[in-house]
């Protein structure tokens, strides 16, 4: 299918679900891209994973009660995020096994609950792998509104999030409320996951959070650039993925994630400073790759004893 055909379908009133799905996919991947930067930089992918699993019983209950799936998922996800934040404060306790037990248990609970609803097999598949049909208009506004709130909070608390991410001990000594900042960040991650579930599905949603941000990290050493690149990569993956999925009749969630993964691999190979191939091209004679590609700054010359070789 050509791009023009895709555009025609997007404008076709009989296919009204398609532009809605595109809007939701793009909005959620932009939000996930931004929030995912903190997730990647703090190495807290496990939180995203735990939350993605734990929202399932909430969605199942909402499904059985015919309520809003986004809202049901949000309630369950936020509850989980709070529990994890409380556990994670004491860094001496190994929290990963607790989370592991807990999230699989929550997932199992979701399966049992949803099995009580008639015709659950179809909806189960929809939860797990995402779908572009059957999105109520209400969810469109819910996702848009939630997305704006999330981005607004990120903008407002960015410098605090960065400080905590850089150095928790220093942040405490500066009087920052580290515990509450953790809670807010975990809740933001949860909401980003929940609004993305509809199109991407429960199993693949973690990719939307991690992959664009990780690709962006490979492409830059500057946080500001990274936080602009990640949503662009996410939004592009969603658009291209939906187009491919529509053209070739492939599952939408899987296709979007595959496009994002392809972008990540490309970044890994050709990133300007740290890419695998980039390094090889620069040093064709098989030397050890080092990072000393720039002239030595003056302050190193002023202190020749100070070894300025980068420690990596």
């Amino acid at each position: 299918m050509s791009i023009t055909d895709f555009l025609t379908d997007l404008l076709n009133p009989d296919l009204a679900f398609l532009p809605k799905a595109l809007a939701i996919a793009v909005m959620s991947s932009i939000v996930c891209g931004v929030v995912g930067c903190y997730v990647v930089l703090r190495g807290m992918a496990f939180i995203g994973d735990a939350v993605a699993h734990a929202v399932f019983p909430g969605i199942a209950v909402a499904f059985v009660l015919q309520g809003s799936l986004v809202l049901g998922g949000a309630v369950a996800g936020v509850a989980t995020a709070l529990l994890i934040a409380i556990f994670a404060q004491n860094r001496r306790v190994k929290e990963d096994s607790i989370i592991g037990v807990f999230l699989v248990g929550a997932f199992a609970l979701g399966i049992v609950i949803i099995s009580q609803a008639p015709g659950y097999a179809g909806s189960l598949q929809q939860f797990l792998f995402g779908s572009i049909t059957g999105i109520p208009d209400r969810d469109l506004y819910l996702v848009g509104g939630a997305g704006l709130v999330i981005l607004g909070l990120v903008l407002a608390l960015h410098k605090e999030f960065v400080a905590v991410c850089l150095d928790r001990e220093m942040s405490r000594s500066m009087g920052l409320a580290v515990f509450w900042l953790d809670i807010v960040l975990y809740v933001l991650v949860t909401l980003a996951v929940v609004i993305s579930l509809q199109t991407i599905g429960n199993i693949l949603v973690l990719a939307l959070l991690i992959t664009p941000a990780a690709a962006a990290r490979l492409l830059t050493d500057r946080l500001g650039v990274m936080m602009l690149l990640a949503p662009v990569i996410g939004g592009a993956s969603a658009t291209v993925g939906l187009y491919l999925s529509w053209s070739y009749d492939t599952p939408v969630g899987g296709t979007i994630v595959l496009v994002a993964t392809a972008i990540f691999l490309a970044a890994w190979l050709i990133a300007p400073r740290h890419g695998l191939l980039t390094k090889r091209w620069r040093r064709p004679s098989g030397q050890e790759p080092t990072d000393v590609t720039r002239p030595m700054p003056l302050s190193d010359l002023a202190h020749p004893q100070d070894p300025s070789l980068p420690v990596r």
Binding site: V162, C165, L166, M170, S171, M174, T220
Partner: peptide
């Protein structure tokens, strides 16, 4: 205690010390 692989420049890292203030 510091996350040295964070994508931040020296001057912004120093500025992070003023976050609380």
């Amino acid at each position: 205690e510091f996350t040295w692989d964070f994508p931040i420049s020296v001057e912004h890292a120093v500025m992070s010390g003023r976050t609380g203030r």
